[in-house]
Amino acid sequence: MEYLVTMTTRVPEGTPEEAVADIRAREAAHSRQLAGRGHLLRLWRPPLRPGEWRTLGLFAADDDARLEEVLASMPLRVWRTDQVTPLSPHPNDPSPAAAGRPGAREFLVHFTLEAAEDTPAQDIASATVAEASCARELAARGYLVRLWRLPGRGRALGLWRAEEPAELAAVLEALPLAPWMTVETTPLGEHPNDPSPSAT
């Protein structure tokens, strides 16, 4: 299984800088080990407020219990709280992506399908078929990297690439299901411990 983990670190006031540097160095080394074992897939920096220390991670584990063992083994866990979101396979997931967009920025996009009750079922069905075809095309063009189902009805999470937010917004607005979806986009920054060679 795959999981999205929001990791928030709060260093206790008065902690010596040397202690922080030591744990960060051990965290980096341990992250490389977890990546080598196939548990840590990606790390990103979301937009941060001043003084905030938060990371988004994509992890893989056999089950929830094994994931907790992985997270508990990370040195920064002594100062960190983790919010775990299980990710389920999505039928339109293009992994592995067919193409890349070198130098493009990455974004996480949350989708929620919210069609009105009087929306004809055939309209949604037709758009869903068209959405699958569109997803394949966007993956081939390097926009869509991964796609997962989220807990709850009609919810999905996508990893996307684009040169700038406006470009991605135009792509998302053209999706066949766009008239019935709410979209929340999070720009992602590079993380020094990200194990993916495709992150840049």
Score class of each variant (00 low, 15 high):
E164L: 10
G154Q: 07
L150G: 07
L147E: 08
R153E: 15
A140D: 13
P151W: 08
R141N: 12
R155D: 07
G158C: 10
V145C: 04
C134A: 15
A162R: 04
E137M: 10
A166E: 15
R149K: 15
L138H: 00
G158L: 05
G154C: 08
W160S: 00
E164R: 15
C134M: 13
A162L: 09
P165A: 11
L150K: 07
L150Q: 12
R149W: 06
R141P: 00
E163S: 13
L159C: 05
R153T: 15
R136Q: 14
G154E: 09
R136F: 02
A139N: 14
E163A: 14
Y143N: 14
P165K: 10
R149L: 14
P151Y: 06
G142Q: 09
A156T: 08
L144K: 03
W160C: 05
L138V: 00
E163H: 13
L144N: 01
A139T: 05
A135N: 11
R136W: 05
L157Y: 08
E137R: 13
R149S: 13
R136S: 12
A162Q: 04
L157W: 02
E163W: 12
A162N: 06
L150P: 06
R146W: 08
R161K: 14
L159H: 15
R136C: 01
W160R: 06
A135E: 02
R155H: 11
P151S: 05
W148S: 02
R146E: 13
C134R: 14
A140F: 03
C134L: 10
R155G: 11
V145E: 09
R161D: 04
G152Q: 09
A166R: 15
G152W: 06
W160T: 03
W160H: 05
A140I: 05
G154Y: 05
E137S: 12
G154F: 08
A135H: 01
A139L: 05
R161Q: 15
A139K: 00
E164M: 09
R146S: 09
L159G: 01
W160Y: 15
G158S: 11
